[in-house]
Amino acid sequence: MLCHVEPTTEPNAPAPQPAQVAYREYLPDAAVAHAALAAEIALAITYNGLNQAVMMVSPGNIEDFIRGFSLSNAIIASVDEIHDLRLTHFDQACQADVQISNRAFWALKEHRRQMAGTSGCGLCGVEALEQALPPLEILPPSTLPPAAHFDNIRQRIEQAQSLARSSGALHAALYFDATGEALLCREDIGRHNALDKLIGALHSDAVDARQGFVVVTSRCSLELIHKAVRARLGTLVSLSAPTALTVRWALKHRLNLIHVPHRNAPRIYSPVQEFSA
């Protein structure tokens, strides 16, 4: 259920300051600290009442984005073809209702199938906010991996990525078992594809995904949280910092979420109340 909030006083407001999110380093007696994480929201766009796309975007300058998106994707030939643009704000999302000219709307209906998935956000083929922010099962709590399992993990991931060593430009999703060994690795040019491949491999090999942990080498975006919860993973580890919204969803659904920075100790974003030495 989306919670409606009052719109900002400035419709095309700049992006808000990063949110402060709690975490703990994987160090003995580590205290809870806070880090500034980038914000993201689900933006749903309709043209003349027709659901077109939902994508994850940084909040702020939404009207500029919609105009640019409409132009750059040939939905309109000029900004003059946008007759009205109304934004409805929610706590995790924004609904944009755009009225365009009859000519532009007719052209949109002719080629809207070619529009789906033109961005790397992973949600551009989704047509309603309910699909971007779906109700998901609350997972049973899962034990955090021991801190020692993250020693030299970036080097071990590089060793497991056989395809990336020869070609580069590939994301990877890996499964580390309960002893901390890399058991499975799947690579793909699409970060969502890599995780999907790994989830499929876990099921094919009858691996209990709640034991051990899964690592993604890509940005940890909301749709990866969706996949992890639906696959009933216990712990998701990302080499790139999560956003504030992904932490919020991981906490809500009891998915362990850990970030492994380049030069610092791993950071536990979900849960922050427990510690596994």
Score class of each variant (00 low, 15 high):
residue 191 R to K: 11
residue 222 L to N: 15
residue 175 Y to D: 04
residue 56 M to C: 10
residue 20 Q to W: 08
residue 239 L to I: 14
residue 20 Q to R: 15
residue 15 A to M: 08
residue 82 I to K: 00
residue 120 G to R: 07
residue 90 F to E: 11
residue 84 D to F: 01
residue 52 Q to R: 11
residue 263 R to L: 12
residue 54 V to W: 00
residue 108 L to P: 01
residue 161 Q to D: 07
residue 225 I to G: 03
residue 209 A to G: 14
residue 214 V to L: 04
residue 13 A to T: 07
residue 113 R to L: 15
residue 248 R to L: 13
residue 230 R to Q: 12
residue 11 P to V: 04
residue 41 I to N: 02
residue 120 G to Q: 08
residue 95 Q to N: 08
residue 168 G to R: 06
residue 217 T to W: 00
residue 249 W to P: 09
residue 44 A to Q: 08
residue 81 E to S: 03
residue 96 A to I: 08
residue 214 V to R: 00
residue 239 L to G: 07
residue 138 I to Q: 13
residue 152 N to S: 13
residue 97 D to Y: 01
residue 176 F to Q: 06
residue 59 P to D: 06
residue 219 R to K: 14
residue 37 L to D: 03
residue 62 I to F: 00
residue 52 Q to T: 12
residue 220 C to F: 00
residue 5 V to L: 11
residue 143 T to W: 02
residue 240 S to R: 15
residue 212 G to D: 08
residue 71 L to F: 07
residue 162 S to D: 09
residue 225 I to C: 04
residue 203 H to M: 13
residue 256 N to W: 01
residue 151 D to F: 11
residue 155 Q to E: 14
residue 208 D to T: 14
residue 170 L to Y: 00
residue 190 G to A: 10
residue 204 S to W: 15
residue 252 K to E: 14
residue 163 L to H: 07
residue 153 I to M: 06
residue 153 I to A: 04
residue 64 D to M: 08
residue 2 L to W: 11
residue 252 K to Q: 15
residue 222 L to F: 05
residue 213 F to Q: 10
residue 257 L to D: 07
residue 52 Q to H: 14
residue 234 G to L: 10
residue 18 P to N: 06
residue 122 G to K: 01
residue 249 W to I: 13
residue 52 Q to F: 15
residue 178 A to R: 11
residue 231 A to G: 08
residue 157 I to W: 00
residue 141 P to W: 13
